[in-house]
Amino acid sequence: MSITTTDEIETTRTAIRETIYRACLLLDDGRFADWLDLCAPDFRYQIKAFSPEIRKEMTWYEQDVSGLRTMIEMLPKHNTDHGRLMRHATVYTIDIDRDGGNAVATTAFSCYRTAFDGINSHLDAGESQLFVIGRYHDRLRLGADGPRFVERTVVLDTRRLDKGSHYPV
């Protein structure tokens, strides 16, 4: 797949941007299976952060597609926080490799949690708090049925996550 004309480039960029935003909406709505439909079979998902305390880049979460599916399938068996996570994202840059049919995109995002159980639900339910901020570093494959995620590395700037979460961000 080769992308050459200005029009083709613009159309591709729009499609990529939409795919990233669509993924955000699906994650916001907890539609994980639909989110995975936007991913290639060889998709790899990671959450990383740098710790100045131990002077190392850390991997906090790492899954392939089948791992993500299993994880999602197992969630109902786990006790979990019932708050909803919602993202605000802006796609900053998209770089298209015109011959290889690949693209990389960098998206800044913040992810808020609207409490349901919160700490004490009587007080907290309905309150939105910033959960994490960071960037999505995505690699997408450009195919006939649109761009598909091949890799997402979530690089978190937030390092204190308090009670944490069972869900991908």
Binding site: S51, I54, K56, M58, W60, R159, R160, L161, D162, K163
Partner: peptide, 11 residues
């Protein structure tokens, strides 16, 4: 060797 660090403040 440490490979992981994170912290939580819990009420």
């Amino acid at each position: 060797d440490v490979f992981h660090y994170h912290k939580a403040i819990i009420p």
